Every structure is written in structure tokens, then in C-alpha cells.
Simulated assay, not measured.
Amino acid sequence: MSHSTVPRSKAGAATTMNPSTASGDTGGPPPSGTERAGRPSLRLRFRRDRTLLLMVLPALLLVLVFNYIPILGNVVAFQDYDPYLSENGFVAIFESPWIGFEQFERIFEDSAFWHAVQNTFVLFFLQLVLYFPVPILLALLINSVVRPRVRAVAQAVMYLPHFFSWVLVVTVFMQVFGGAGIIAQTLREHGHTGFDLMTDPETFKFLVTGETIWKDAGWGIIVFLAALSSVPGDLYEAAAMDGAGRWRRMWHITLPALRPVIALLLVLRVGDALTVGFEQLLLQRQAVGPDASEVLDTYVWWNGIRNQDFSYAAAAGLVKGVVGLTLVLTANKVAHLMGEQGVYKK
């Protein structure tokens, strides 16, 4: 019987073949870690997403021009800035004398600044407790409506006040809760004493919170409704078959689905704690006085624009920004400790 016709040398070469060659490797350089994991390179991702990047480019330019480049102007907080030193206010930055941290010392020694800080945090806590849960409750209420037409009408009615300006919102509340408003006139017609909530400093913070709820609560439910729409209906059906009632299904299915969104919006809300409605409070400042309505935004505006103390106002705004950033990072860390993603991952 004849032996195989394959030469011995070739057979030996076949038996000692490199495993990488046998698996189809051409002997080139080994792929990178990202390519081994199946992730395309940066160049391929850029070519793939170039259309989306071009669409986002105008928004990025707007953010760069109106949000990041003006940060360089914070240098006036360390100067005795005078815009009249030159015909060009930008050139006056280079001609104004450098005074270091003198403006910050003035801020921390100013009792009016600390009063504005106190009013700001009081309004923030009131809105956090009274306003933040309202969009969640409204989203749960709308999500429980079965008929699509009724749901659409309810959403439209709740969204509508968001598109009103603060001038119109304050006017509406004045016509209802003011001294010459509908409620006060009705009480007087029936022999009772009228009231004027619009000029009462004691209830002003609750009034401002009520205005915020009426204007923006309906708009805030959009994010929560989007999160609820991603919950599979099979979960509700399976829970109903297991005997879970409506409350139990909401507690074990609906609220866990909203938990990441609630954590994210809560972190953002904490970071925005020092911004509680500049235009809204400025419109009502004269009616209740600065003791009840002065917050950090109106304080910066009053000192920077009305009194033309630009360096002092810039220093106050810089302190506000640093504190806001610290609050965001702290709240995001707490979200991580609670097992949520927050604004960014660990």
C-alpha cells in the first residue's frame, strides 16, 4: 500500500504552523484594545457620525460664545474695573488696576449679601419640597388615564402656562390674589375683610413657589412621561396576574422606573439652588420690598447694573458659581452612593 504523497518537509511545516496564521492572521500588527473589543476607531466614528456632529455644531458654537468665553470676563472680580477708562469696555479690562481679593472681602463683610443668600436657600428648599414632587405626581396621574384623547387634552392644558412670560404670570396672580383681585372683591361683597397676598412679605415666598408650580409644573412632566413610556406593558400585566393592585404596581414598577430620572433631575436642581427666578422676583421686588424678595441674582443685578459696581457684582457672581458647582458635585456623589448614575458615571 502506498504512503501519502505529501512531502515530509511540507507535512512538518503544516504541523508546526503558527496558530495565528491558521486562524486567518496575516501577520500584521496586533489590533488595539478598542478594536479587539469591537469598538470602531475614532476616525471611523467621526466619519459615521459626521452628519450628527454638523447638526450639533451650531448649538456648540452658541454655548461656546455665550457661556464659556464670557467666563474669561470674571477677571474683573479681581480688579477695580472701570469701563470708562477707555472708549472700549473690553480694553478697559487691561487698564483697570489689580486689587486681588478685596472685592471678595467686601462681599463676606456685607450683611445684605448674607441676607440674599438666606432668602435664596429658603426659596430653594420651599421649591424643592413643594414644587419638585408635583411634576412626578402629574406624570403618574396622566399616565393612569386610559383614553388617549383625554390624556392629550390634559397635557396641553398643563403645558400652556409654561409659554407665558413672567409678566403675564404675575399679572394673573395679581388679578386673583391681589388687593383688587377677584377673591378679595368677592369677600368684600359678602361682608368679609379682603386681603392682598401680592404685597404681604410674610407669605411672599409661598406665593413665589405657587407661581412657579403653576407655570412650570406641567412642562416638567415631559421627562417623567418619557421615562414611563419606556416601561414594558408586560410588567404591569404580569403583576396584575399575580394579584398586585394599582398601588402595588405603582410602587414596585412605576416608581423604580422613574428613580434614575428623579435622581438626575434632583442633582441638577440642587446645582441650580442659587438660581430661583431672577425675572419673577425682580417684577415683584417693589411690591414687597427687598427684605422679602432679595436673592443672589437680584443682588448681583442691583449692585452691578444699577450701582455700576461691576467688579463687586462679578465677585458675587463668581462666588455663586463656585458654590453651585460644589453643590452639583456633592449631590452627584450622594447619587453614586445611593446606586444611581447621576449627571455622570463614576
Rank of each mutant, 00 (worst) to 15 (best):
W98N: 10
W114M: 05
F125E: 00
L85Y: 05
L42C: 05
M55K: 07
F113Y: 10
V65D: 03
L53Q: 13
V134Y: 00
S111C: 10
I71C: 01
Q79R: 05
R39F: 14
E102L: 03
R45V: 15
E102M: 09
V75R: 11
V91K: 01
H115T: 08
R45F: 12
F101V: 10
N119I: 11
G89N: 07
F78S: 03
P97M: 05
A112F: 07
G33M: 13
P30S: 12
L126K: 04
L64P: 05
A77Q: 04
R39Y: 13
L52Q: 14
L128C: 03
R48L: 14
L57S: 07
I69N: 04
F90V: 12
I99D: 02
E105S: 10
V129E: 03
F124T: 07
E35M: 08
G33F: 12
L57D: 08
D110A: 10
N67M: 08
Y84D: 04
T51R: 15
P135T: 10
L126F: 05
L72A: 09
I71L: 09
P70I: 01
R50V: 15
V65W: 10
A59R: 05
R36M: 12
R48T: 13
D110T: 01
E35V: 15
D80N: 09
L53P: 04
R39E: 14
A116H: 03
V76K: 00
Y84V: 06
P83R: 00
S86N: 07
L62C: 10
R106F: 11
I93L: 08
F46G: 07
F108C: 06
